[in-house]
Design a protein around this nucleic acid. Structure first.
Lengths: 264, 264
DNA sequence: ATATGCATGTCGCAC
DNA sequence: GTGCGACGTGCATAT
C-alpha cells in the first residue's frame, strides 16, 4: 500500500479496483483527488452538455466541488459546485466519477477510458486571503472622505458600516438635497443607470415631494451610460478603486514614486 | 532525463534548477504544467490581493491560462485568463511563477516555498463539447412554436436567425399589437423587468404612438419582479429551458416516461 | 478596441 | 430558503 503522511500519494492506474476503493476512502477522509486521463463527460441539470473523449484533468476537492479541465481555457468544461455527492465506480473497465447535486438537481458523469495519473492530495491550507479595491473599499473611502465625490457632501449615518437597503451611500449635499450614490468598481454602464434611477424613484416615493439626486461613482462611464443618465437625470463622478485605496491606507508607493521621479 | 512520449512526466522537485528549466521548455512546447506545493501568492491589477502560505495546486495551461486552486471551493483563489505571459524563476531557493497580462495590466506572482509534486502534462483533447438549453435554444423554440408564449403570436422576421438589436424576439399579437419578448433561462428578476421596460420604451419612441407590450419569458419569476413588472406594465410567461428542448428536438424521454407510467 | 448581455455563472449577505 | 447584487467575474458577439 502507499505511504501515509505524504502530501501526494500516487496510485497505480492499472489496478482499477484499488484506485476505486482508495479514492472512495480518501474522499471520505477529506482529501483532494486528482485524476489525469482520457475521459468523456455528460451533464444534465439546469442545462445539458456532452463532451466526447479527450485528455483532461479532474479535481475533486475536499468540499466535494468538482472541476474537469481541458488543456486550454480558464474555465472548467464541466464542474459541480461544493457539496455535491461524489460516487466512484467501475463500469465496463472504465473509472466512472458521478457527481450529483441537489437543488437544483444536477448530475455530472465523467468516464475515464484511460488513466495516466491518479493521486490523492493531503493539502493543508490555512492561508489568509485578502482582497483590496473592492466596491466595499470604495464605499469606505467615500465615507472617510466624502469630498472626493463632491465638496460639502455629508453622508447620512456615517457610523453605520452596512449599506442602507440597496443604496450604497446616502448623503446630503451642501444645499440640503438628498443624494443617493451608486458605486461601481468598473465602467458605469446602462445597468448602473437603470439601477440607480430605480433607487432614486423609490427614495423619492418614501421621502415625499423632495427631489433626490442620483450620482454614479465609477472609474469611467460608457457612452450609452452618459446618454441614458442624461435622460434619467443621473449624475456621474469619476473615481478609481486605486485612488480609494490611497485614501483608505495612505499613498503606499510614495517612496517608489519619488524614486521613479528621481531616476527620470 | 525524463521519458518523452509520456502523457505525464513527473520531475524531481528537489532539483529546482532542472524544474525551472524543464518547465520553461515545456511551456514553450505547449504543454500543461502542474505544480502541487506550499506557496504564497500576490496579485496586482484591477484589484489587489494577498494570499499567505498554504498547500495549493497550480495549473498553467497550454494557452497560458493560470489557475491557483486551494483544497476547497469551486473557484481558483488566484488566476490569470488565457494569453498571459508566464515566467518561471528561482528566487532565494523558491520556485517563482510570474504571470503577467496586458490590457488590463495585471500581475500574479506565485511563490512556492516547497514543492510536493511537479509534472508536465502532454494532453491531447480534440473532444467536442455541446451545450443545450441555453437562452438561444429557448429563442429558437419560441420562433418554432410561438403559441407556447401566447395563442396567435406571430414573430416578426422569423427567417432572420439573429436577434434584432437588443430584443430577443419581436412579434405581433392576435390583436395586432407589437410584442417585445425578453427571454431568461433563470428566474425573472428585477433586472429583467428594468431591462425590458427600457426596450419597450425605446421601441415605443421609434414606432411612434402605439402601445408596445413587453413579455418576460422565464422558468419562474421572483416576487419582486412581479411587483415591479406590474408597475412597469410588463407581462410574464412561464417557460422552462427543458420544455424548449422538447419543442426543438422532440420529447426524447417519451419511452421512459411511458415505462414509468406503466410501472406506477 | 469598446460595449453589451449571457452564463450550468458562483458567491456571499440580508431578509 | 429566496432574492438580490458583486465579481480581479469570463466570454462571445456586434459595432
Amino acid at each position: 500500500m502507499e505511504a501515509k503522511l505524504e502530501k501526494v500519494t500516487l496510485l497505480d492506474p492499472s489496478n482499477l479496483e484499488n484506485v476505486k476503493n482508495t479514492l472512495g476512502k480518501a474522499l471520505n477522509d477529506g482529501k483532494v483527488l486528482l485524476i489525469i486521463g482520457a475521459c468523456s463527460a455528460d451533464y444534465i441539470g439546469r442545462a445539458r452538455s456532452e463532451l466526447t473523449i479527450g485528455d483532461r484533468i479532474l479535481i475533486v476537492k475536499s468540499d466535494r466541488s468538482v472541476l474537469l479541465h481541458r488543456p486550454k481555457s480558464y474555465k472548467p468544461v464541466n464542474w459541480q459546485p461544493p457539496g455535491s455527492i461524489v460516487n466512484i465506480s467501475i463500469e465496463e473497465n472504465d473509472l466512472v466519477v458521478k457527481c450529483v447535486r441537489e437543488k437544483p438537481r444536477e448530475t455530472l458523469i465523467v468516464r475515464f477510458i484511460e488513466i495516466y495519473t491518479v493521486a490523492i492530495l493531503d493539502l493543508e491550507d490555512e492561508g489568509e486571503f485578502s482582497l483590496y479595491a473592492s466596491e466595499e473599499d470604495m464605499r469606505k473611502a467615500i465615507l472617510k472622505n466624502p469630498a472626493i465625490v463632491e465638496e460639502g457632501l455629508k453622508p447620512v449615518s456615517l457610523e453605520r458600516p452596512v449599506r442602507s437597503g440597496f443604496i450604497d451611500v446616502e448623503a446630503i449635499d451642501k444645499n440640503g438635497n438628498i443624494v443617493v450614490i451608486e458605486i461601481k468598481r468598473r465602467a458605469a454602464d446602462v445597468d448602473a443607470a437603470l439601477q440607480l434611477a430605480r433607487y432614486v424613484r423609490d427614495l423619492e416615493k418614501v421621502r415625499g415631494i423632495g427631489k433626490v439626486r442620483g450620482i454614479v461613482v465609477a472609474p469611467r462611464a460608457t457612452a450609452e451610460f452618459r446618454r441614458l443618465a442624461r435622460s434619467l437625470g443621473i449624475e456621474f463622478k469619476p473615481l478609481s478603486p486605486k485612488r480609494c485605496l490611497e485614501i483608505l491606507y495612505g499613498v503606499k508607493e510614495k517612496k517608489e514614486t519619488t524614486l521613479d521621479e528621481f531616476i527620470s
